[in-house]
Structures are given as structure tokens and as C-alpha cells.
Simulated scan of single mutants.
Amino acid sequence: MTTPPTNDAAIAQWNRIPREVLEAMEPDGDFAKRHLVNPVLLRMLGDVRGRRILDAGCGHGYFSRLLADRGARVTGVEPTDTMFGYAQEKERALGQGIRYVQADLTRLPALGDPFDAVVCSMVLPAIPDWKPALRACVQALRPGGLFVFSVNHPAFEMLLTTWREHGDYRLHRYLEEYPIPQLRATDFHRPLSAYLNELAALGCRLREIAEPGLDPRTAREAQDTTPGIESYVHLPNFLIAAAERP
């Protein structure tokens, strides 16, 4: 019998990420975050000045720092020693007033007053037992607060890989949940309905879903170093949603 994956095992995988990889993602994440994910997250959040925001699963803290630069009062939660330590180190150097807390999202400690907004970017697909994490994000909000999350688009998760191999996109499994081994850790495929139905079960009101595509000019500039990047012009590799807590 195969042992089910655990959150602790997933955290252990991510804890092995090399420091040079984190440094390479300064100051605004990798290529996809910079061009596809960040602009949508920031637009959905709107004016964050003076707002109390939780960056749930903040990793090495780059998005927390982007929010603090825009005037938000940020708390970042991260379970891994490696990325939590890096985020703290950056805060000591920059003094942005970000509070970092080391914790598993499924076992959040008390974080003070409810938040105006919670961001959970590219985190839920990395968590085997993800529903308690999503529930904790929603419960951390004040009534009417905004929950914004991004995931690999469930219909186009392996977009770049299959496009490079076939010149188009091919998908053979969608409806069930299954692990997707990645370079550094394992992600988990779930159909879009799993995320949206869980939001509905928590009473959230969906405000927007975005499926960002890459600007053709940006794709042309990157095609020599990233073969197949034109696939991001035609199909969405990411899905970003905004919902309100009742």
C-alpha cells in the first residue's frame, strides 16, 4: 500500500531549496511570477496602503516585500527553515516592518486581529492536505475581507513541457487528484472545481477569476532562452481567483 503524502514531507522537500535559487528570485520572483502572476495579484488587491495583509505561505518573502513597498502592514507565514530564515534576514537588512511567523498553514497560531486581505500564491498545489490551509486563510480574514490565491491552472499544469515535446498542449488526466513531481518538490493536481467548491462551502463570494496570458512581445524577447514560451501567449499556465469572506 502506498503511503499517502503528508504536509510534513512536503515541507521537508521545500526546505532543501538552495539559497542561490532564492537569491535568483529577487526582487520580484521568477519570470512567470513577474510577468503573469504578480500583476494580477496586485491589481486584485488594489490599494494596499495601511491595510493589514497576510502572505500565507510566503516562501522567501518576495511578495511580502512588494506589498510592504506599497504601504501594506504585512505578516508572512512560512513553514520551512530555509525560506523563513532567508525572509527574516531580508527584513533585518531592509527594515520594512514585515512580521514573519514560522508555521504550517494548516496549524496557524494566533496572529492578532483579523486581516483585511490574505494572499496565498502558488501554495495550495504544494500542500497534500490542502483544505485546512484554505480554511485557515479564510478564517484569518475580517468579515468582507479579500482572499486572493493563485495556483497552477489545473487544465494546463504541464504546458511548457508538453508544448516543447509536441508543439501543442495535451492532457490525459484531469478529474482525479494525483501528484506531479517537480524539480524540487511535488505538486498535486486537483480539478478547478475542488478549489471553487471548497470556497463555496466556506461561504465565500467569488469576485473574479483570471487566466493571464503572456504578452506576445515579452514571449518573443524570451524565446531564445526559454523554448516553448510562446505557449504562454495562447494558453494560461496559471489561475488566479479573488473571493470575499462573508
Rank of each mutant, 00 (worst) to 15 (best):
M1Q: 08
T2H: 07
T3F: 02
A10L: 07
I11V: 15
A12D: 09
N15W: 10
M25K: 10
P27G: 11
A32K: 05
A32R: 05
V37K: 03
P39W: 08
P39R: 09
M44D: 05
G50K: 06
R51Y: 13
R52V: 04
G57E: 03
C58M: 06
F63E: 02
L66E: 11
L66H: 05
L67Y: 00
L67G: 03
D69N: 13
D69M: 09
A72V: 02
A72T: 02
R73N: 12
V74R: 04
V77Y: 00
T80N: 13
G85M: 09
E89F: 10
K90V: 01
A93E: 15
Q96E: 12
I98R: 02
Y100V: 09
V101G: 06
V101S: 10
V101F: 01
T106C: 14
L108H: 02
P109E: 14
P109R: 06
D113S: 15
A117D: 08
C120R: 04
C120G: 11
S121P: 07
S121G: 14
V123H: 05
P128D: 10
D129T: 13
W130R: 04
R135T: 06
C137G: 12
V138H: 07
Q139Y: 11
R142S: 15
P143R: 10
G144Y: 11
G144D: 13
G145V: 03
S150C: 09
A155G: 13
F156E: 03
L159Y: 00
W163S: 00
R164T: 02
E165D: 08
E165F: 00
E165H: 04
H166E: 09
G167C: 07
R170S: 00
Y178T: 05
P179D: 07
P179S: 12
P191D: 04
L192W: 14
N197D: 13
E198C: 03
L202T: 04
G203V: 00
R205V: 15
L206M: 12
E208R: 13
I209H: 11
I209T: 13
A210N: 06
E211G: 04
T218G: 01
R220N: 10
L235Y: 09
L235P: 05
N237W: 02
F238A: 14
L239E: 02
A243M: 08
R245L: 11
P246D: 14
